[in-house]
């Protein structure tokens, strides 16, 4: 292996792995169990997994079509659309949370009607958690899937058309299976991002155990009063997400899967 590649690769791996090692070394292994068995930990973990999974599903339903429009349609202004879709990537998540308030809050452009007509408010609910996570995580999916679509040979879609498949059938039966590894990679990326989401969630959904307190929020607050507890919570989040990703990688992507997890 050439040194100009190997050396930076090793430095990079060390850079990524050492902070995790730091967490492991500083973890209070002796009172790990009492920390873990606090009801709030299980609650936050469950909420995190459920909301990140829901956010990923919503992102798939909305994001894959966006990616298709970006990669395949001849719609004018697609580059503008692409820039808009990726705004959440560069937006500080807290600002994203405020922006969500301005639209979906009870004083928001749309949220106001929900509040006035149905007496329903989105903020401070689990729905708000899913919305905040979707807002921040969906661009990762869109970009992955768009990349996969662009890399896929569009002539397969021509072939499908000559075999009587309309665009929707072509998308379902040909395009989607062809880019499935890219979609899976994007979904995993999206899920991981949603799982770690903090800023937009705590801003738009607030923080309340059981309804809106996800693991990152619990970790952050624990850091204020109980840094060792925060380390334990971080490790739990880390291991659960790693285990999930490795499991999915084997199941979905087989050995030749896309490079993730």
């Amino acid at each position: 292996m050439p040194a100009p590649l190997l050396v930076p690769a090793l430095v990079g791996v060390a850079f990524l792995v050492l902070p995790l090692l730091g967490l492991l070394i500083r973890a209070p292994w002796s009172d790990l169990w009492p920390q873990l068995t606090q009801p709030q930990v299980g609650q936050a973990l469950r909420l995190s997994l459920v909301s990140a999974t829901l956010a990923t599903l919503v992102s798939l339903v909305l994001g894959v079509p966006i990616a298709w429009v970006l990669a395949r349609s001849t719609l004018p202004g697609r580059s503008v659309l692409r820039a808009l879709v990726t705004v959440p990537l560069v937006l500080p998540p807290v600002v994203g949370g405020v922006a969500l308030f301005l639209v979906l809050g009870r004083q928001g452009i749309l949220g106001r009607y929900l509040y006035e007509e149905f007496d329903y408010t989105i903020p401070f609910t689990t729905t708000a958690v899913v919305i905040a996570e979707t807002f921040v995580a969906m661009p990762f999916l869109v970009i992955s899937v768009e990349g996969a679509l662009r890399a896929a040979d569009a002539r397969f879609e021509d072939a499908a058309a000559t075999l009587g498949a309309n665009r929707w059938t072509t998308f379902r039966r040909v395009t989607l299976p062809l880019v499935a590894p890219g979609v899976a990679a994007g979904a995993v990326l999206c899920w991981a991002r949603a799982l770690g989401e903090f800023g937009a969630t705590i801003t738009f959904a607030g923080n309340f155990p059981g309804t809106t307190q996800t693991m990152p929020l619990a970790v952050y607050l624990a850091l204020q009063s109980n840094p060792e507890g925060a380390i334990v919570l971080s490790l739990v989040l880390l291991f659960v997400s790693l285990a999930t990703l490795l499991l999915l990688r084997d199941r979905w992507l087989g050995r030749s899967g896309a490079p993730l997890a």
Binding site: F156, D158, A159, A161, L163, N166, R167, T170, P177, L178
Partner: peptide
């Protein structure tokens, strides 16, 4: 009339068989 509404068959240079089927 779009391709999928024409009663035709087409053979391409590099077969373009769908790899997932």
């Amino acid at each position: 009339v779009p391709a999928h509404e024409r009663p035709l068959g087409m053979v391409f240079q590099d077969h373009l068989l769908f790899p997932h089927l």
